[in-house]
Design a protein around this nucleic acid. Structure first.
Lengths: 340, 340
DNA sequence: TTGTATGCGTTATCAC
DNA sequence: GTGATAACGCATACAA
């Protein structure tokens, strides 16, 4: 709470104008070496640092970027942590402040972030196929990047996981192990009907895999909680005793699947192979360590941030749309089918 | 990227001075109802919103708070996620921006956050018993709150978990189940020697419990990774075949403990009871669901943020030091001792 | 109750 | 090369 030296103090002490000091601070040309030297010394003496806030106001920017993550749906959120850290690391290295907004935002609130120069750009998470935030920001021509994507993505920058590919890859892995009755547990319909992209595309992937391998469609949906997945899995196993493989687009809560299997005396992977799509960290936490589609959350966060920052630096930067094909990591929850 | 109405535009259009507009924006008294009415209408018409950044510069504040979380040690970080969300929610409700800084910060960098009015206050995580950041901020009289605490906490505001109590409670739980040979796995010495508080105090708790119940001290330390805990546990079990209970201050990586037990044919909890200190989310993810000291991460985050905001609002606000006694939640990893 | 004038700490546009 | 001076958009002591 002390009073700090300002650019004025420096200018006076060095016997130059604030303009010159400003030039030196911003590494602009056209300043005599001797002058620069002297001013730098004074800056040292006075322990002066520029007032970021004032710099930003004058320059018409904020040097900060917000991540909008509506957190209503808190689950096993190691994944979100990785998103955050990925974003935050890149932002800091580029000299940006990173703010995290987890409350749901109103239209007014979102616009005000930009109008008040609180942020230079935002990254959106939990994108719906039709998302009012996207339309709003696009209409106003504010810089933003999506983690996830919409139905119509023309002109948008996003980074997303190819859920369709992921689910297909999971099915293919099980198929190659000899499984011919592969169940699928998706996110509950109510969310799919709200156009939640990953749920929709995951189902497509499962459908396509079944079509290609000529497998029966064995399907349930479930809320993303352990209990719900426990119930859904039980239901599915009871209805389809011939099931030997199970794929889900759920994350941590799929331990409910494992417990449902265990309750019925099924050993994973001997009697039932199980797969999901989750971060390596969480997959390793589960018993048995889960063969899974590896969700590259941190990489997505950092790449989204990089895209946004490039966009901010370069007005002409073209929208970039990245769809990552997540790798499959084999661990211990899948194995060759064993006919009963 | 449009040009927005300013307070000047509003003033002109309403035929008043900017002072009056400012008064109305800030809900100050002494403004005629009629005037207020008229100005508010103009604000509507022009779709005006105050420029937050300029407000902050003029008012000498930033209305934002940073959380400093040096993320070198990424583990199973659902816990950190909860800290973040706890902080972020409270900040947003109080009208503060929340920035997350995960990179390690230099002395200069930390000071500049304040000098440049980038933040009004900070919350520190990963506190060491002697922490240069604490001393620096205290010397400069900048507002901050700790999640965790130091050795000398005079005048500091912090919120912390009582690890000593937690470890004692864990031991007591096992003792009450009949266990008389309770091992302990702490964080590795190298970190303890760096004065990392939780490790130090956890060990105190274990020691005190052993003293009180007259138990032998059976102890190893380990890095917080699955592999390290697997190795440490194996080592401990081999050296002490009479071990029936195991307490650790580790979080997610304690699945290494469970796997070491499993490898030796020990069933948890029948042959070995295991406890840790972790969030409920992670405890439920583990198989078997873990009896654990429940780490109240989100509550700590929100309380820390509340403390800091009160401090910012009220200069006279006294330093508050909160040490939470985390509850013990019984799940399925502990049971009565079964003599071999 | 309202308005004037000054300040917040910079950057940027000119002249010189 | 360098320096006035005007923005940037708002808050606020003081005067009216």
């Amino acid at each position: 709470m002390e009073r700090h030296a300002t650019i004025n103090d420096v200018a006076k002490r060095a016997g130059v104008s604030i303009t010159t000091v400003s030039r030196i601070l911003n590494n602009k040309p056209d300043v005599a070496p001797a002058t620069r030297q002297r001013v730098l010394e004074v800056i040292q003496e006075l322990d002066y640092t520029p007032h970021t806030q004032a710099q930003n106001l004058a320059a018409g920017r904020s040097r900060s970027i917000a991540l909008l993550y509506p957190s209503e749906s808190m689950g096993f959120s190691e994944m979100e942590f990785e998103f955050f850290v990925g974003c935050a690391q890149v932002a800091a290295k580029a000299g940006f402040l990173f703010n995290l907004i987890v409350n749901s935002v109103t239209e007014h609130g979102l616009l005000n972030l930009f109008r008040g120069s609180q942020v230079d750009g935002v990254i959106l998470m939990e994108i719906h196929l039709r998302d009012w935030r996207v339309e709003l920001l696009r209409d106003h021509d504010y810089p933003f990047v999506l983690i996830g994507r919409c139905q119509d993505n023309t002109g948008l920058s996003f980074i997303d996981v190819d859920f369709e590919y992921g689910m297909m890859a999971a099915c293919e892995h099980l198929f190659s192990l000899g499984h011919r009755h592969i169940g699928f547990i998706n996110l509950t319909d109510s969310l799919r009907e709200q156009d939640y992209g990953p749920a929709v595309r995951s189902f497509w992937g499962y459908e396509r895999a079944c079509a290609r391998f000529q497998l029966p469609i064995i399907y349930r949906d479930s809320l993303p909680t352990i209990d719900a997945l426990f119930a859904a899995t039980g239901d599915l196993l009871d209805a389809h005793p011939d099931l030997t493989g199970l794929v889900t687009m759920h994350c941590g809560s799929l331990v409910g699947v494992l417990r449902a299997a265990q309750k019925r005396g099924l050993v994973v992977p001997d009697d039932l192979s199980v797969m999901g799509i989750l971060t390596d960290q969480i997959a390793q936490l589960i018993t048995p360590p889960l063969t899974a589609i590896s969700f590259p959350a941190q990489a997505m966060g950092s790449r989204a941030m990089r895209m946004l920052i490039r966009k901010l630096r370069d007005e002409t930067y073209q929208a970039k749309q990245i769809t990552l094909k997540p790798p499959l990591v084999v661990r211990e929850s899948t194995g060759p089918v064993r006919h009963k």
